Amino acid sequence: MLTEQERERYARQIPLFGEEGQDRLKGAKVFIAGAGGLGCPIALYLAVAGVGEIRIADRDTVERTNLNRQVLHRESDIGELKARSAEAKLREANPDIHVKAFATTIDETNVRHLVDDADLIVDAMDNFPTRYLLNREALQSGVPLVHGAIRGFDGQATTIIPGRTACLECIFPEAPPAEVCPVVGTTPGVIGLIQANEVIKYLLGKEDLLAGRLLLWDGLATTLETYTVERRPDCPACSPGVRS
């Protein structure tokens, strides 16, 4: 049940999906992997939309080089754990939600605990080994994964529904080379909000997701394109008979 304060807070979005929809957001749990360029706008907009529990994990501390794009962190947060910095800003943005911060490296030993009973996993990482780990946990647990990645002015996003759509390893069978990539802050803003929008739509039961589609953003040309992606019968992660 929504409180009067929540009805007032969400007065401009309740007309879109009703109190029942808003209550669904309130009862939802979302795990966000990463509190950096993508994780910050994703977490912020899910928080102000009223997603009831946000879990966010990041092992790093805030550096000055982060501040052109990681919008939850401030100059005064330099040296602070990103997870804790994000937690404080999210609680301030919406005191009606629950925020759980994990200052840890996501790996095989803890990914199941971090995801736990979440309704969605959000990939806001900057490396493919961890993305593949999240992908396999999503497949094994049956929890959808909302993927996003950025570089420079460009970005991509897709929503993976286990057992129904191509998984991350179907789409990207080989990881690109690791690098410290250049990025302008608007790129994670665009892709992060697309990811947050996918989360909200899924939680509300909307059908028109980026499921089976890869969205590509070209910030220099200001174009958005989507391409159909299909499951690979030989995918080592999700092909029939594979144990995740």
Rank of each mutant, 00 (worst) to 15 (best):
M1H: 07
L2F: 02
T3H: 10
T3L: 05
T3F: 04
E4V: 00
E4K: 07
Q5W: 03
E6D: 13
E8S: 10
R9T: 02
R9A: 11
Y10E: 08
Y10V: 11
A11G: 00
Q22C: 05
R24A: 07
G27M: 04
A28G: 10
I32V: 15
A33N: 11
G36H: 02
G37L: 00
G39E: 08
P41F: 12
I42S: 07
I42P: 10
L44T: 02
Y45Q: 09
L46I: 12
L46W: 09
A47S: 15
V48L: 01
A49S: 15
E53T: 13
I54G: 10
R55E: 03
A57C: 13
D58R: 04
D58G: 02
T61D: 00
T61L: 07
N66M: 11
H73V: 06
H73F: 04
R74P: 04
R74I: 07
E75S: 09
S76M: 03
I78P: 05
E80H: 13
E80C: 12
E80I: 06
E87Q: 14
A88L: 12
K89V: 00
K89D: 01
K89C: 05
K89T: 01
E92T: 12
A93G: 14
A93D: 09
P95K: 13
D96V: 01
I97G: 06
H98S: 12
V99L: 05
K100H: 01
A101W: 06
T104W: 03
T105E: 09
D107K: 05
D107Y: 05
H113P: 00
V115F: 07
D116N: 13
L120Y: 02
I121V: 15
I121S: 03
M125C: 14
D126L: 05
D126H: 01
D126T: 00
P129C: 03
R131G: 02
Y132E: 09
R136D: 15
V143T: 14
V146K: 02
G148R: 08
I150H: 04
I150C: 11
I150Y: 05
D154E: 15
T158Y: 10
T158D: 01
A166L: 14
L168I: 01
C170E: 13
A178C: 00
V180P: 09
V180W: 03
C181V: 15
T187L: 04
T187E: 03
V190Q: 11
V190D: 03
I191C: 03
L193N: 14
I194E: 04
Q195L: 11
E198Q: 15
V199T: 00
I200W: 01
G205Q: 09
K206F: 14
K206L: 10
D208E: 13
L209V: 10
L209D: 12
L210V: 04
A211K: 08
G212A: 04
G212Y: 07
R213T: 05
L215H: 06
L216V: 14
W217N: 09
W217T: 05
D218R: 14
A221T: 00
T222S: 07
T226H: 06
Y227A: 04
T228A: 15
E230C: 10
R231L: 02
R232Q: 12
C235L: 12
C235A: 11
G241K: 03
G241M: 01
S244Y: 08
S244E: 11
